[in-house]
Computed example of a mutant assay.
Amino acid sequence: MKKALLSAAVLSATFSTFAQAEEVNVYSFRQEFLLKPLLEAFTEETGIKVNVVFSKSGLLERLEHEGQNTPADLLLTADIGPLYDATERDLVAPIKSDIIEQNIPEHFRATDGRWVGLTSRARLIYASKDRVEPGEITTYEELADPKWKGRICTRSGKHTYNLSLIGSMIAHHGEAETEQWLEGVKANLAQKPQGNDRSQVKAIMEGVCDLALGNSYYYGKMATNEDEPEQKEWAASANLVFPNQDDRGTHMNISGAALTKYAPHPEAAVKLVEFLTQEKAQKLYAEANFEFPVRPNTPWSELLEEKMSGFKGDEINLGEIGANRAAAAKLVDKVGFDN
């Protein structure tokens, strides 16, 4: 507690040094390289300075400790999980903006306005080009088919990306059926859940497994990786399967933004979110991480247009999925998925 309060005091002092006519202070789970060009463009266009604290964890706890004295105006996240948690902890306030409502589809916005999606990504099935025929698997449900016994790789079931996928299964099928499905997937695992999404695709290339779960943007990161060119081989070893195209569509997740409950500069914060939903910013933001713009009809990056265009995404509101994440975590423990 003392460390958290000291940290909050240091942050407040840091932000106060930037005091000027108009500014906005951001707590961001998203990496600096993704945001810097956009925030610089926003400042150039509006004259509003943006001060950012980047952290991989602890930002919600920080907001709780700071309370009404927080210097933060805006929270940026890389997943629906922290957005939903911030809402449940009463740390964020509704964003009221006709511009945002016009730019962002309803399923990528909170029904009460307390979070807004900024980019999206699909939870794919990566399938071995050598050992899985095209069309041999087309749904998430089929991952539980015994024909895949010993042939599936994934990271931990408790990882936020998988919790959201399991949460979507609960939304569509209920807890009892999802538990059965999860038991089936566990029975088909080639190894104990481990590593990150990229390492699952590597495992496909190495013959450890034939199928893997992974976010869509990792394909772009691997296929264009000049620093670690071996990752290009990982990407080239797998076909991309967008599940459930004949029914609800592929599970989608988002990066997003929320206005803090006690934002010192709420108007400037809303202006920044509005800016991030404009077509130019959407295109730049999505391209930086090989994600999809959430604003309709915004051009995709050339690589994504070539490899992923035309798929149908699940349009269930992500707030419903967020509400199922706790139940999803309990199911992961109940079936011993990670054991």
Rank of each mutant, 00 (worst) to 15 (best):
L211S: 05
R198I: 15
D210L: 07
L182Y: 00
E226V: 10
A236I: 10
A203L: 08
C209S: 08
S199G: 09
C209W: 07
R198D: 12
Q180H: 14
N225Y: 06
V185A: 06
P193D: 00
N188F: 01
W181D: 00
Y218I: 09
P193E: 03
P229W: 03
T224A: 02
D210E: 09
V208G: 02
L213N: 00
T224N: 01
M222Q: 03
K186H: 05
K192H: 12
C209V: 08
E226W: 09
E230M: 09
K221W: 13
M222H: 03
M205F: 04
K202G: 11
C209R: 06
S199E: 12
Q231H: 11
N215S: 15
G195P: 11
Y217C: 12
R198K: 14
A238P: 07
P193H: 02
A190I: 02
A203Q: 06
N215C: 13
Q180F: 10
G184M: 04
L189V: 11
G184W: 02
N215G: 15
N239R: 15
D197C: 11
Q180W: 10
V185P: 03
A203I: 07
A212K: 03
A187L: 01
Y218N: 07
Q231A: 09
K202H: 14
S237W: 04
A190H: 02
Q194L: 14
K202P: 10
K186L: 05
K192P: 10
C209D: 07
E183G: 12
Q180K: 15
Y218S: 05
A190V: 02
M222G: 01
W181T: 05
A187W: 01
V208D: 04
Y217D: 13
T224C: 01
G184S: 07
